[in-house]
Design a protein around this nucleic acid. Structure first.
Lengths: 186, 186
DNA sequence: AAGCGAAACGTTAGTGACTAACATTCAAGT
DNA sequence: ACTTGAATGTTAGTCACTAACGTTTCGCTT
């Protein structure tokens, strides 16, 4: 871990702690930087915005490939669902409790929620493109992608609000399972 | 139309025109106010944020009532769908082209998209509460609400991107129809 | 018509996120 | 030690947004 990465990790850890203590809006970037022993410019060299210290841009093109690779004969909704479940299963076994901390911050902060949803917007574009490759109509592609991402995001927030030990990936898979039977018409 | 309302309408018209010409981020509140012949403080007395001049807070509790009033024996997903379709049919026949202008602005501006999605977040809370009144589980309520709102929002954006004369309400109803068969399990 | 009060609006000064330009320090490798 | 590039610092600025307080406008009463 070189100097740059150490600074980044330090900034992130301090920022999240401060956000948990006092709330996202009540902590200034200046203060985070000061406690990390750096200037605010260094903060912005590591994180493009105040929000991105909590959620960064994953923008996974893998999701697109997994969806485009599904059997064309099953409905669009199911293709997306299977693609996403496969992507989840490939996910490194991340620390669920760390993710929970961050999503809980988002529950209290419109700015952080907006960040998550902006990431979703980009992912939605990837899903739509993948579906259209296989002949799905633009409207159906958008609707299916929007529905699944909306469901996942809501499930994520529901999960973060619980105290139980539920596994994140399992929880999301269960959430998507609740939408069984969708899109049977196409 | 009293003085206050005239100022509000003027600010809004000028703002949207400027946003269309140069993009949301390239127009300052100061400039909008100046062209409307007022100070920036007056702008903020009429609109709480720069975004809200394009999208304001509808926060319709009617949606909650319509959903809570659905037959408990049909699946949660269908209850929400019918409630929303009913709410749409009660909507005053708004000017579709005006709505299209605004949503097109949102296609180009993350800040405006965030505003729409934040409104959705509040609506989602209303839907979740309505479903839970009728015994739906917290997870399913969230997932169903998230899926339908996600689908609607995506359809809205798809609609705004088209040039055709499609009716907004009809388009949204068609979009929700694409999700036919969902949630059959509950 | 004069004056009164409240709503609408203006001025000023400030905070905080974020950026650009330029200067400085640090950490290797030679 | 010396050089060089990466990491960081300083400074000054823009813009969204707010608070406090002063001013104008307008309908209404007298």
């Amino acid at each position: 871990m070189d100097r740059s990465e150490k600074t980044r990790v330090r900034l992130q850890a301090i920022a999240i702690e401060l956000f948990e203590e006092r709330g996202f809006d009540e902590v200034t970037v200046e203060e985070i930087a000061r406690q990390a022993g750096v200037s605010h410019m260094t903060f912005y060299r590591h994180f493009s915005t105040k929000e991105s210290v909590v959620f960064d841009d994953p923008f996974d093109p893998m999701i697109g490939e997994l969806i485009a690779g599904q059997d064309e004969n099953i409905p669009a909704f199911e293709r997306v669902r299977r693609g996403i479940v496969q992507a989840l299963s490939l996910l490194e076994e991340n620390d669920d409790s760390e993710m929970r901390r961050r999503i809980r911050l988002a529950k209290e902060s419109p700015a952080l929620r907006a960040r998550i949803l902006e990431n979703n917007y980009r992912t939605e574009g990837v899903i739509v493109a993948a579906l259209q490759l296989n002949g799905t109509s633009p409207l159906e592609a958008r609707v299916v992608a929007g529905a699944i991402l909306g469901a996942m995001t809501s499930a994520l927030i529901e999960w973060a609000g619980r105290d139980g030990p539920e596994n994140l990936r399992g929880y999301l898979a269960e959430a998507l399972g609740l939408l069984d039977g969708v899109g049977a018409s196409s």
